[in-house]
Design a protein around this nucleic acid. Structure first.
Lengths: 187, 187
DNA sequence: ATTATTTGCCTAGGACCTATAGGTAAGCCT
DNA sequence: AGGCTTACCTATAGGTCCTAGGCAAATAAT
């Protein structure tokens, strides 16, 4: 019988698409096997187990996201870079919700090392316009990530829907606030 | 045969404790039934299904968390209130990780209404010292929640462990930044 | 081109989780 | 004591995760 031509990469790609369709938590080995028209057991030649699949998906998403962000902040600086960075963040979460969820799982330091490095570099690139130095640079980077991730995460979970105030307006205000706090940081 | 004396509330309480022990995603109907020494099927007289159990757990956590926060900000104002609010937030996430995870699931507006109201009230109580008015009050509240939730969430997922800078120091800096941005908000 | 090796996918099966249907017995009320 | 409600049961079915072991297709060796 003809082979489906499975590889770990093809499985991970398909899992990512599946995650965006049905949600990260509904990405199962069975569903993925169904998608390729093979039996569950066949996937275990390519992935160690379900958790391994999730980790691969997270790594894929982190790399893809890093590329997007890098592209969006290229050639910008100061508040322009901040806004572009933030927009890339929020847009990715909206367009690729499954991948975004995948990115949030805890990875062991080794696995995350590459992505972590690239993300750290880009964050520093954005913050370069604000003239911050260690250790404040790290504090600022953590605040930046916290704010963006927190906002996007709460928006997705519906926490902002209970109030008529437009989410977009609050988002812009948050970016203003971030910009001003970063500019005033050295003080 | 003796009855275990199950009720939806007792199940929810036990589920919450279980969540803190083994993680929210590992709270299953089976595990809960085992804990009470009854068969899985017996639980379905008290809860509609597994999702219903998770929702009840989330509501429990939200209410419990609201109580804690209310207690911690009572009698404080301005930055004191902000710091107490933030500490309650972070401490709850650390001490009750399963409950904290449960709180993040998306609830339909009706189910979340009570908790949402109480949370909104408390946030407004914290922000009272900063003399903000609608619609900026909502923007500020959203920024506050985003920052706290984002920080706590990233800390828990290990995103901050890749750098030697102490997380506590970054946390204090983030609170300073929040305080200053809230004070400068009307500008 | 035939053989040997690897590898992709299979069947079979076990463990655990979710859920429903229908039954029995414990506890409450009068 | 009688009847009613309900807490818990057995039985059953389907879904997911994963392992063991087998055959056949693809690939490499001769």
């Amino acid at each position: 019988m003809a082979r489906a031509g499975l590889t770990a990469d093809r499985l991970t790609q398909a899992a990512a698409d599946l995650a965006d369709e049905v949600g990260f938590e509904n990405v199962t080995v069975s569903a993925l096997a169904r998608h390729f028209g093979v039996k569950d057991a066949s996937l275990y030649s390519h992935i160690r187990n379900a958790q391994d699949l999730r980790v691969r998906l997270a790594v894929l998403a982190l790399a893809e996201f890093a590329d997007r962000v890098a592209e969006s902040i290229a050639g910008r600086s100061g508040k322009d870079a901040l806004v572009a960075f933030a927009a890339a963040y929020r847009t990715y979460a909206q367009e690729r919700p499954g991948r975004y969820s995948a990115m949030q799982i805890a990875l062991d330091p080794d696995t995350a090392a590459d992505s972590a490095l690239k993300h750290a570099e880009m964050t520093r690139a954005v913050l370069r316009g604000y003239e911050l130095w260690e250790p404040e640079l790290t504090d600022a980077a953590r605040l930046l990530h916290s704010t963006l991730h927190g906002f996007v995460s709460l928006e997705r979970s519906g926490a902002f829907h209970s109030h008529p105030r437009g989410v977009e307006a609050s988002w812009l205000r948050a970016l203003d606030a971030l910009d001003s706090v970063l500019r005033a940081w050295p003080a």
